[in-house]
Write a protein that binds this DNA or RNA. Structure first.
Length: 589
RNA sequence: GCGGGCGUAGCUUAGUGGUAAAGCUCCAGCCUUCCAAGCUGGUCAUGAGGGUUCGAUUCCCUUCGCCCGCUCCA
């Protein structure tokens, strides 16, 4: 079965992660703690490489992205504004029969006759189940229907046949305790807070509640104005951040894939509203087809920016060794989108346990900044010189059309937030008037990636096993992690051919010290050379450098050269020590 | 949160109501002129807590963790 094979692969990866020091269970000596994982020596290097590559790609190699590193605990109002407090702390009830889950406060109130049971008995075996249960029937329905449902419930509890006990009825008005679909009793409403809660200061009471951030993004929005001013960036530009986030997941699963403490790499890329683009450039450029749209252009609308970032991110993944064939793009359907999102593309990776999300690239309109503007009372709009200059040159009917479009968009947003129609209309009119003066709240494209799931993707993608037969005819399995050199935790293994020849060891240490400032290298002199190669293969080290007697001049023409061995095919070549650093740099970049 | 399975060294497995075994790995020494060679020695385990028992890794209970399915996933 494909599934058991995949599970076996996953188990091998997990086992290797522990054996070689990529990932350990958090707090293992105390029995572990569900949903938390530590990175060991190799994992820490791997993760550091991935985050650095992301940071370099997203900020240093670009003109238009600035960095930020914000705190994990922020003002609790941030999570009010973002919507996390409300959507994360709903009381939930489960149907006792079907296990379907409901928001307790959103259940259509039900009225009718409730049939209560104190339990049930299996008349053949005498076994009893004393779990109380109830079914709500609309007035006029025969009691048989309730008994059938209740019988089903007790059958699920392990009774072979069911004799209901203690039936009594009760008139019920507007109750949210029953499943509207089948009348079954629900569990007591249980709070379902997916944010980790803490208290600021020594006294733990409700006045000083704070939350560990469930995403890094909100800090970017909250600091938008500060960054915009200090970075001397102008829209379109982005703010990038890498950092820990925390979610009290219902079910942490699949090794590190869904953890309760995890790390995100998020970019919020702020763009002009399409109305501003239209005013400045006369029209809004939209995608002409699939694929990368090329270098950003001033007249791009949000759709092109969105597509641009999807393609940029896929290129990034390809660049660190995830082949295009292991990735999938999933365009969320309109009904799956969060209410504020205009579009969202998930970049999925084919994990052994299924094709799962690595990153989501959402076009979030101006929702986030608008929320913070509204909740903090601080303006989040920017001034756009180009827009101000362009506006007066527009034909009056064009001005009116753009204004009206912007007004409608703002009004729709404000209405959704619960503003009164009058206030929504008035504020939206003001916003439209400000647009004409060059002011707007930027829209945003959000590529948001999970570091830990990317690490897991890199690990499962790199994992290969090669079966071979040694000279004594024994079958052996060599495990090789075929990491892209860019992410490999150790770049170079350095080996004196023999341990008991001081000259070889001394030269090896010389090579190690020469390379050490540039890469993570590992000197190993223990065991046969083949064993040392194999050990590094398992760690994913792309290059091995061996110092042998020719390095010392046994063959004069090979003096001061070393053997470089390639991890993936075992091929070797001879490289002069003087060129070694450049040789390696060219292949690791 | 619900249901099922599992838990013995770093890994893979053995075994027993009475001293917990092996292979691989790892470490040390010797040896070794390019792919897990050999020799010698060594470290390391019954997930945790409780109960039954003279004695529990084994039986029972609880708990924690892992895996699978359901549920959830802003």
């Amino acid at each position: 079965m494909a599934e058991t094979k995949e599970t076996a692969l996953m188990e091998k990866v997990v086992s290797l992660c522990k054996r070689r020091g990529f990932v350990f269970q958090s707090s293992e000596i105390y029995g572990g703690i569900n949903g938390f994982w530590d990175y060991g020596p190799l994992g820490a290097e791997l993760k550091r490489n991935v985050k650095e590559l992301w940071w370099t790609t997203m900020t240093r190699l670009r003109e238009d992205v600035a960095g930020l590193e914000a705190t994990i605990i922020m003002h609790p109002q941030i999570w009010k504004a973002s919507g996390h407090v409300d959507t994360f702390s709903d009381p939930m009830s489960d149907c006792l029969l079907t296990r379907k889950r409901f928001r307790s406060d959103q259940i259509d109130p039900q009225s009718g006759i409730a049939y209560h049971y104190s339990g049930a008995k299996d008349p053949s075996s005498g076994v009893e189940c004393n779990d109380p249960y109830a079914v709500l029937l609309p007035a006029g329905k025969p009691p048989e229907s309730a008994r059938r449902t209740a019988t089903q419930f007790y059958l699920q509890r392990g009774l072979q046949s069911v004799e209901l006990l203690g039936e009594r009825t009760e008139k019920v008005e507007n109750s949210q305790r029953f499943n509207p679909d089948n009348g079954s009793l629900l569990t007591e409403p249980r709070p379902f807070n997916l944010m980790f809660k803490t208290y600021i200061g020594p006294v733990a009471d409700e006045s000083n509640v704070a939350y560990l951030r469930p995403e890094t993004a909100q800090a970017i929005f909250a600091q938008f104005k500060n960054v915009a001013e200090t970075s001397r960036q102008k829209v379109p530009f982005g703010i990038a951040q890498v950092g820990k986030a925390f979610r009290n997941e219902v079910t942490p699963r699949n090794f590190t894939f869904r953890s309760r403490e995890f790390e995100q790499m998020e970019l919020e890329f702020f763009i002009k509203p399409d109305e501003a683009i239209e005013a400045i450039h006369g029209s809004v450029a939209t995608p002409s087809g699939p694929g990368h749209p090329g270098e950003p252009q001033a007249n791009w609308g949000w759709q092109l920016w969105h597509q641009y970032w999807v393609e940029e991110r896929i290129r990034f993944y390809e660049g660190i060794g995830l082949p295009r064939t292991t990735l999938e793009e999933y365009w969320q359907k309109p009904e799956e989108l969060a209410h504020y999102a205009r579009a969202c593309v998930d970049i999925l990776f084919k994990f052994p346990f299924g094709t799962q999300e690595l990153e989501g690239i959402a076009a979030r309109s101006d929702f986030d900044l608008s929320q913070h503007q509204r909740c903090s009372g601080k303006p989040m709009s920017v001034f756009d010189e180009e827009l101000k200059m362009a506006w007066p040159k527009l034909a009056p009917e064009k001005q009116a059309a753009i204004s009206e479009g912007y007004f409608t968009h703002r009004q729709r947003y404000l209405t959704k937030t619960g503003e009164t129609p009058e206030k929504a209309e008035r504020t939206a009119r003001e916003d439209a008037a400000n647009l004409a003066k060059g002011y707007y709240v930027p829209h945003v494209i959000e590529p948001s990636a999970g570091v830990d799931r990317l690490i897991l993707a890199l690990l499962t993608n790199a994992f290969t096993e090669e079966e071979s037969v040694d000279e004594k005819g024994r079958k052996e399995i060599r495990t090789v992690l075929r990491f892209h050199p860019r992410v490999a935790p150790v770049k170079v293994g350095i080996f004196p051919l023999l341990k008991n020849k001081p000259d070889l060891v001394a030269r090896a240490i010389e090579v190690r010290d020469m390379l050490r400032p540039h890469f993570n290298v590992f000197h190993d002199e223990a065991g046969s050379i083949g064993r040392r190669y194999a050990r590094q293969d398992e760690a994913g080290t792309p290059f091995g450098v061996t110092i042998d007697f020719d390095t010392l001049g046994e063959k004069p023409e090979l003096l001061n050269t070393v053997t470089v061995r390639h991890r993936d095919d075992g091929k070797q070549e001879r490289v002069p020590m003087s060129e070694l650093l450049a040789w390696l740099q060219a292949r690791i970049r």
